[in-house]
Design a protein around this nucleic acid. Structure first.
Lengths: 94, 94
DNA sequence: TTGTGACTTGTCAATTATGGGCAAATATAT
DNA sequence: ATATATTTGCCCATAATTGACAAGTCACAA
């Protein structure tokens, strides 16, 4: 969760909101949000959507980052990452 | 594992090899290979490499399909699949 | 310096996902 | 009709993930 986490931290800091507050909103532990923003843990789709609302951010922007992270996650350290992703992308389009 | 499974089945049938034989080579149950070829279960990286040898196929071709499947897997039913993957792809290149 | 609030880190428990075996059911070919 | 090949369903073991909690660090105000 590198990209999304970074973005969420940026957003949160710009709005001067505390981890504690976000955590309470999502009804999870503060430590969890900390880990999420640092890319150590993942959000699920619903949580991303809730956060988009909470922060008044475009849902599609955050979900795109969320998908991006999941994809990068699955291909990390994979020599054929690029080739595989390109093929996958073609499949989607067709 | 749609793509890789299909490919593996095509290869195996073209060589008139039995599931039983492949299974024995990989030291797993025959049912497992059946499931793999039909996309119900996944191979791990090492198994893909072993199969490439076994079938005399280019390792990179099979691994690319393998990565492709993993990626498609992770984005299936995701409206932002394409956007997310494109962003992920850009990240890789940079 | 001490204290306080914000965040991070490490560990543990609970849940969920995955990989594999086995047996029974189907399908295919003799 | 029988034997062989494949598929299906179910169950178990192990691995991965999620979350809570407690203890730790850090920055800074009193």
């Amino acid at each position: 969760m590198k990209k999304l986490g970074q973005e969420l931290r940026k957003i949160r800091e710009s709005k001067k909101i505390l981890l504690r507050q976000v955590a309470s909103y999502l009804e999870i532990d503060t430590a969890m949000i900390s880990k999420i923003e640092r890319g150590e843990r993942r959000l699920n789709r619903q949580q991303v959507i809730k956060l988009a609302e909470y922060y008044n951010e475009k849902e599609d922007k955050l979900l795109t980052l969320w998908v991006c992270d999941k994809v990068l996650d699955v291909v990390e350290n994979e020599p054929y990452a690029k080739k595989g992703m390109q093929k996958a992308l073609k499949t989607l389009v067709v």
